[in-house]
């Protein structure tokens, strides 16, 4: 399983033909208490860097962008029903959606864990 990160603080975990996408531990800590999540429906075509989902804290709304091109397989109803999962388990049960990859080579342009950790360090 490969995990990659975007500069917008999404993570994408690839397992075979399907990838799972969410926001990082750092992103949720910056957002604060998540009170609303909107996830894409199965079958929706996603474009790298474009809107895919919505996450809102008490104070503000943020977009979650598609890390790569592909098609939604499933949105996570559990985070819609309980948005606090994004805070309590952002890189586990708080995932947003699963997608197929139209162009797996796009993963090569994303950061690995070490590069993302360094990127976050530079944000402080």
């Amino acid at each position: 399983m490969t995990i990659r990160f975007t500069e917008d603080h999404e993570w994408i975990s690839v397992d075979g033909d399907v990838a799972t996408v969410g926001i990082t531990t750092f992103a949720q800590s910056q957002l604060g208490d998540v009170v609303f999540v909107e996830v894409p429906e199965a079958g929706r075509a996603l474009t790298k860097g474009k809107d895919a989902a919505v996450v809102e804290s008490v104070k503000a709304a943020s977009e979650v962008f598609a890390p790569v091109d592909g098609t939604v397989v499933e949105g996570n109803q559990a985070v819609v029903d309980d948005p606090s999962l994004v805070n309590s388990d952002p890189q586990g049960a708080g995932w947003f959606f699963k997608m197929t990859l139209a162009n797996p080579a796009q993963l090569d342009g994303l950061m690995d864990q070490a590069a993302y950790d360094a990127f976050v360090e530079g944000q402080h």
């Binding site: 604060g32 208490d33 009170v35 804290s57 008490v58 104070k59």
Partner: peptide, 12 residues
């Protein structure tokens, strides 16, 4: 201060 470690929800 916009929030403390408790967070906006729990502070409220």
């Amino acid at each position: 201060p916009v929030q403390y470690p408790l967070g906006v929800l729990k502070e409220h």
